[in-house]
């Protein structure tokens, strides 16, 4: 008899666990906007095509990338992107030679200014590419960052 109640109890608790699992899944559904394919792309071209629908971008002098010339620690490379353009919808930060080049994409609302800053990991010396989507067009700038100790693997 005791065994039976025990079984019943454990069955009930496993049902609760399943419910919790299902509940935990819901944030991922909400994240439908997260561009999974772009974050899995292995080349800059693929990442941009997946994210913006095009890998063509015009070089622009109005995009300033602030990043160190030499990063001693590839695990923490501060990168700031600033632009004076209007109508900006996205700013992406791409580390050209990372296994997965697309590091971050910022979707900006109408009141946001053309400035984002964060810290990224870089596997080895490469260009940091900033892609700005403004008024439906793509613009980009790049800056080389030398990495002395890689931030991936280890």
């Amino acid at each position: 008899m005791q065994r039976r109640t025990f079984l019943k109890g454990s069955l009930a608790s496993s049902a609760v666990a399943v419910a919790v699992g299902a509940g935990l899944l819901s944030p991922r559904v909400v994240l439908a906007a997260w561009p999974k394919a772009a974050f899995e792309a292995k080349s800059v071209q693929d990442a941009m095509t997946n994210l913006f629908g095009s890998a063509q971008s015009a070089p622009s002098g109005d995009i300033k990338i602030k990043a160190p010339d030499i990063a001693e620690n590839g695990a923490v490379v501060p990168v700031s992107v600033k632009t004076g353009m209007g109508n900006i919808s996205d700013i992406s930060i791409i580390a050209e030679k990372n296994g997965v080049p697309l590091a971050a994409n910022f979707v900006l609302g109408s009141t946001a200014k053309g400035f984002v800053s964060t810290r990224i990991k870089m596997g080895k010396t490469s260009n940091v590419i900033a892609v700005v989507k403004a008024g439906g067009k793509l613009y980009s700038a790049r800056k080389e960052v030398k990495v002395t100790i890689g931030g991936c693997g280890g």
Binding site: A33, P35, A103, F106, K113
Partner: peptide, 22 residues
């Protein structure tokens, strides 16, 4: 919503984020 950041694992541990809006 003023900004949505979409990140990969290539953003550093204990991420820092800064942005501006009007």
């Amino acid at each position: 919503t003023v900004m949505t950041a979409q990140w990969s694992g290539a953003v550093s541990k204990n991420p820092y984020l800064s942005f501006q809006f009007t």
